[in-house]
Amino acid sequence: MPDRFAPDAPRERQTIRLSEERLASFREWAENGTARTAAARVRDSEGRTALVQNRWSRGWILPGGAVEPGERPVAAAQREVREETGLEATIENVVVVVDQSYENEAGEAAFSAEYVVYAARAEGEIPSTEQLGVSADEITAARWFETLPERLHDGDLLERYL
C-alpha cells in the first residue's frame, strides 16, 4: 500500500472479499499502480448531492475512480467527477480515507488500498449518460439527489460522511 494519505483525516476500515477473477482484475493497480482511488461528495448550492451508477456498482455511488501513476488524488477526484457527471467540481478537503483490505473468497489477504473521499462543489445540469464516462457503457445513470437514496453503495460505511 502507498504511504498513508491525509493522516489527520477520519479513517474507516473496509474488507472487500472478491472472487479470484475479480481480484486479478485489480492486482496490477494494487501492486504496480497507485493502490489508491479518489472520489468526491459533490454538492451544489441547493445542497443536492451528485451520484452515479456504473456497470459494476450495486446502487448509487460517489463519482470517483483509480488514481493514475503520477497523478495527485485531488486531481484524480476532479477528473473522475468530470468524466462521470460532466460537472467541473471545485475539490475541497478530505472527508474520509478508507483503508481497504482485499481478500479472496476464502478470506485470505490479497492486497491493500486506500479510498480517499473529498468534499467538492459544482453547479449545473448533469448530461445524459451517453455523454458520460470513458467508455459508452461505463456510466448507467447520473443525477442530483436532494436526499441520499436507499440503494447507496457502501452506504453503511460512508453515509455519515455524506
Rank of each mutant, 00 (worst) to 15 (best):
T34R: 01
E159S: 11
A120H: 08
P127H: 15
V74H: 07
P127L: 15
G124P: 14
I139E: 02
D8R: 12
E105K: 01
A35T: 08
V97C: 06
Y115A: 01
I91A: 00
A136I: 03
T37M: 07
A76T: 07
Q100E: 13
G124L: 10
A122L: 08
G59S: 04
V134D: 09
G86P: 01
S128T: 10
R58Q: 02
R43M: 12
A110M: 13
G124A: 14
P69R: 03
D154C: 03
T147D: 15
D137E: 14
I61R: 10
T85L: 15
R43S: 09
G133I: 04
Q14L: 14
L23D: 10
A136T: 07
N104H: 08
L148N: 01
I61C: 11
R82T: 14
P7H: 05
R55Q: 08
A142H: 09
S135K: 14
A76G: 08
I139M: 01
R27F: 05
E150I: 00
R4Y: 10
R72N: 11
D3R: 03
V97Y: 06
E80S: 13
V52G: 00
R82P: 09
D99M: 05
E83N: 13
T85F: 14
A89K: 15
R121D: 10
A109H: 05
W56V: 13
L132D: 07
E92F: 06
E28V: 13
A122T: 10
T129G: 03
A109Q: 01
R11F: 02
A142Y: 13
W56F: 11
E92N: 15
V134R: 15
G65V: 09
P73N: 06
L132A: 08
E105H: 04
T129A: 10
W60A: 09
R82V: 10
S101I: 01
G107D: 12
R55G: 05
A120T: 12
R160T: 14
A9E: 07
P127W: 15
G155H: 05
E71N: 04
R55A: 08
Y161E: 01
F111G: 05
R13Q: 07
E88G: 08
E108A: 09
E68K: 05
G33W: 04
L158V: 06
A77S: 02
